[in-house]
């Protein structure tokens, strides 16, 4: 079986991302649903402290890439390396333990449980009760709206509140790498701004972030480095600022042309 070559990737701007080793390295990842290949040889790197974004249209394979990293879909080919350890194909709960949390597509909050219980489940692997309490308080600082709803059933909240909860819940694992799948999906513009502000704030507090977005403009605005995914392959990559001014990107994803 021939694996797709890396030559099809166009580097836009400088590929130099400093001397630190990447915290996450995905190499030649291929993921199938039955016989359908959803991800066809994706290679991405996330360096410590970065916000990296994966943009592309619907069905490009963004979510599947994140699912493979989180251990929800097993890769058929390729490697996933986190902090030097190979994690491809390991079960999801082990990957959370290693320090990768995800706020998934569709949020997947536990609708019949309270906001408080959802947040506590985010810290399922942790045993430091005081630390968990501190982190619940930290999430409430980031999203005061959640504090008002602490005992409300999560399923009865609005989409925006559920998105806040999904992000807050992922943070409760105290991840080294936080993955966000479409954090702005279906939200009112004012909430979209709030979510991206929070992404920046969480990153400034020291969490590395890998974010999937359809809202390319907003994503490129907060990210340092970006990959453009098309039909399961990386098409372009480069510093977010360079991609944001790239003609091809502007035409295809920023609605210009």
């Amino acid at each position: 079986m021939s694996s797709p070559t890396a030559e099809s990737v166009t580097q836009v701007g400088s590929g130099d991302r400093g001397s630190a080793a990447p915290v996450l390295e995905v190499e030649g990842l291929r993921v199938f649903y039955g016989n359908i290949e959803a991800v066809k040889g994706v290679s991405i790197k996330v360096h410590p402290g970065e916000i990296v974004t994966l943009i592309g249209s619907n069905g490009a394979g963004k979510t599947t890439t994140l699912r493979a990293i989180s251990g929800l879909n097993a890769p058929r080919h390729g490697t996933i390396t986190f902090e030097g350890k190979s994690i491809g194909g390991r079960p999801g709960h082990e990957i959370v333990k290693l320090g990768i949390a995800q706020s998934p597509e569709g949020r997947k909050i536990f609708g019949r449980m309270s906001v408080q219980e959802n947040l506590e489940l985010g810290a399922f692997q942790r045993t430091d009760k005081d630390g968990i309490k501190d982190d619940v308080a930290r999430v409430f600082d980031l999203f005061p709206r959640l504090k008002e709803r602490i005992n409300q059933r999560a399923g009865t909240m609005s989409g925006g509140e559920q998105q806040m909860l999904a992000m807050g819940r992922a943070l409760m694992a105290r991840p080294k790498l936080l993955m966000l799948d479409e954090p702005s999906m279906g939200l009112a513009p004012v909430l979209v701004d709030l979510i991206f502000e929070t992404v920046k704030e969480v990153n400034a507090q020291g969490t590395t972030i890998l974010m999937v977005e359809q809202n390319a403009l907003a994503a490129l605005d907060v990210a340092r480095y970006a990959y453009v995914l098309e039909s399961g392959k990386i098409k372009l990559e480069g510093p977010a600022a360079a991609l944001a001014t790239n003609d091809e990107v502007r035409k295809a994803y920023l609605g210009e042309g």
């Binding site: 929800l72 079960p91 999801g92 709960h93 959370v96 019949r112 819940r169 694992a173």
Partner: peptide
């Protein structure tokens, strides 16, 4: 209990539970 919470989470959304670090099996 913690296993009980894991049960309820898994019952509502197994993938969601995996993302919390719950051993679903």
């Amino acid at each position: 209990t913690k296993p009980g919470k894991a049960m309820r989470a898994t019952a509502q959304d197994a993938d969601g539970a995996r993302l919390m670090g719950i051993n679903v099996n």
